[in-house]
Design a protein around this nucleic acid. Structure first.
Lengths: 212, 212
DNA sequence: TGGGATGGTGATAATGTTTTCACCATGCAC
DNA sequence: GTGCATGGTGAAAACATTATCACCATCCCA
């Protein structure tokens, strides 16, 4: 998908919002009113641009025939391949219908936790860590950090130029970093945990998500 | 809400389905086609009946102006008042946008866990247990059980006529029941866990959910 | 300096959709 | 047996909505 212009992003956000609050997509006149446009044709062109970029689908001759694409839940990231971005396609196991607004700050993806290094905080092997994507974290937060080629989940403590990545399990060791020397790459902060006690559900979309 | 007739329930289900698959409510002609009706007026009367019963809201003069009511996520049940049904209004803290189909079997409500009796299974104080409502449970399942006036979350073990409710924390004691004497009321089985690591989100609907 | 992408106004035809008219049939309670 | 809720047909008016026409302005890049 090409990048959206700021205006297009605004309009896409309004459609999302309208859908959530009203339960149906907006019409072109409704969009025109919302953006103080005098003509529905201005709206129409934005919608065509959004459709061309794959952000929405326009159903011909259907009232409110606007369908959001790529809104199929959050990606579940499995084992992160060495050196690849967390959200790289080869790491994504599927997409699951988790409402991003259920968590604060907003959830961006799910990370399947491996190992028991955070056991004493109730995060077990196989749990889904709900992650907010950010490069900044505060002391005390649960972080998804990149250490070389590995991605790890630990609690962060910052003390001046020193950083600690602290597990919640006495069998694991705290990692000490000197920020004047070492690079600490934050991938996101943990904002929630989801565990399936029974069988894992089927994803709403498989490994590859095609746009039409 | 009055009870729906079978026909009305069918139509409501179709609206739900259409909304999920198409991303917008159906029109009256679309409904007429789906139910092989020759006239949109037949549909209109059903919609008016559904609206009168509080199942939907009809927005006048708006294309696809059908809005589902009472579809606002799962109820979060807090401390269960003595003797009251789990889902009694006084126990419901709010409603949260959790997709029931994310868990198997289907999630029916969320129960705010109190205490640390299941700590070693990674279920902590304040966690939301995702519950499937059922009165039947198998040995080994995590159950929401009613013991007298109290509701408790434990792992169930059945051995012939004996039942055990087993905590996951050595500080708590296993409860032994003789099913020939004692009554074990199952309220549901735990199918998942959700934890908010940051502040708890605002509910999509407050303690009281008004219809219009 | 010219052409394409973006972001508009204004108007109108064609089509989709809601709403209401009149009328009919069945089952069920009082 | 009459009245009422339910579940229909058929038609038509009024309104909502989509789609497309011609035209304009700005910005950026080759």
């Amino acid at each position: 998908m090409h990048e959206l212009t700021p205006r297009q992003a605004e309009i896409l956000a309004f459609i999302r919002e309208h859908l959530a609050t009203e339960g149906r997509p907006p019409t072109r006149p409704e969009l025109a009113r919302a953006f103080a446009l005098g003509s529905t044709n201005g709206v129409q062109k934005h919608l065509l641009a959004l459709a061309a970029k794959g952000a929405i689908e326009l159903i011909p001759n259907a009232a409110r025939g606007i369908r959001l694409l790529g809104e199929m839940g959050l990606p579940l990231v499995g084992r992160v391949a060495a050196g690849s971005p967390v959200l790289a396609i080869e790491n994504v196991l599927g997409r699951y219908p988790v409402d991003p607004s259920l968590f604060k700050p907003r959830a961006d993806y799910l990370l399947q936790v491996r190992g028991l290094s955070m056991r004493d905080e109730g995060i077990l092997d196989g749990d889904w860590l709900v992650v907010h994507r950010t490069t900044e974290a505060r002391s005390g937060q649960l972080v998804v950090a990149r250490l070389g080629n590995d991605v790890t989940v630990k609690r962060l403590r910052l003390r001046g130029s020193k950083a600690e990545l602290i597990p919640a399990n006495p069998d694991f060791q705290t990692l000490h970093l000197d920020l004047t020397r070492d690079v600490l790459e934050i991938e996101g902060i943990g904002v929630g945990v989801i565990r399936n006690l029974m069988a894992a559900p089927a994803p709403v979309a498989g490994r590859r998500v095609h746009r039409l």
